[in-house]
């Protein structure tokens, strides 16, 4: 039986001004509709339109958060403009990413990439993380350029390149010369790239990274971290040896 969308009118009207501590019982109808929308494209489009309309001005923060959670489940490209408009808003940026990160297709990635160049450092870290979760290859040069940014952003950019773990990402990390916390993140990310190459069967590429890191930490102090890095590089080198080739 098709979902009766007239039952949604009252809960959506109540949602606009909902605040934490308010009566959430009416939202059960919306929750049920979200589940039902899986098998009902018309209902899904109707819900998405209603949700997107609530992301503008005049809606409470609690309501926007609820809407973003629901759009993270059923949102499509149609919701991207309304969500993208929140990316620069400190209060709502994270929840907009909460939805955008999960929406399939190029539109949310394009929106995140565009916002990366527009938002401040705090929010930029979020854009980087979300683009990394999508393994967005087009972001690699953008992340590479951020490796000399402030430590928080540079660290996030390095981690993101390690998550993407493409040859281009590995090359960007190899060329990076950050200092402080970002330098540690670059090493972690390079190890992640090497592990990814090893898993994909590209032993030479992995070996080159492990060798470079082993050499870089050869004379480093014997701290717990340096020992762990040495262990990662050495065990990686053992794993990268091609034992099918006669010496």
């Amino acid at each position: 039986m098709p979902f009766d969308t007239t039952t949604l009118d009252a809960p959506f009207a109540a949602l606009k001004s909902f605040d934490w501590g308010g009566d959430a019982a009416p939202f059960k109808t919306i929750d049920d509709a979200v589940v039902a929308a899986h098998a009902d494209a018309t209902l899904r489009a109707d819900l998405e339109k209603r949700f997107a309309a609530l992301l503008g001005t005049g809606t409470s923060r609690a309501a926007k958060e609820y809407v973003c959670r629901k759009l993270s489940l059923i949102g499509t490209a149609a919701s991207v403009p309304a969500l993208a408009a929140l990316l620069g808003d400190k209060d709502n940026s994270h929840m907009a990413r909460f939805a955008l990160e999960r929406i399939d297709g190029p539109e949310p990635v394009d929106a995140l990439r565009k916002a990366l160049g527009e938002v401040g450092s705090d929010l930029k870290v979020g854009m980087i993380a979300s683009l990394a979760s999508r393994r967005d290859a087009a972001s690699v040069p953008l992340f590479a350029a951020l490796l000399t940014s402030d430590p928080m952003v540079a660290t996030a950019a390095a981690q993101a390149l390690g998550r993407i773990a493409s040859p281009a990402a590995a090359a960007a990390l190899a060329a990076a010369r950050p200092k402080g916390p970002a330098a540690d993140a670059v090493i972690d990310a390079r190890l992640a790239c090497a592990d990814a190459f090893l898993a994909a069967g590209d032993r030479p590429a992995a070996k080159a990274i492990f060798e470079a890191i082993a050499a870089a930490v050869a004379t480093a102090p014997h701290t717990h971290r340096e020992r762990a890095i040495r262990m990662a590089a050495q065990s990686g080198l053992f794993a990268a040896v091609d034992d099918t080739v006669a010496p």
């Binding site: 899986h38 993270s72 489940l73 059923i74 940026s93 994270h94 990413r97 909460f98 990160e101 999960r102 399939d104 705090d122 929010l123 870290v125 979020g126 980087i128 993380a129 979300s130 990394a132 979760s133 928080m152 996030a156 981690q159 993101a160 998550r163």
Partner: peptide, 18 residues
């Protein structure tokens, strides 16, 4: 199942990343 795959993870609030 795209919807199920959406639930594999969730965006973390900045500045926290994995």
């Amino acid at each position: 199942d795209d919807e199920a795959n959406r639930l594999l993870d969730r965006a973390r609030r900045e500045p926290w990343t994995l």
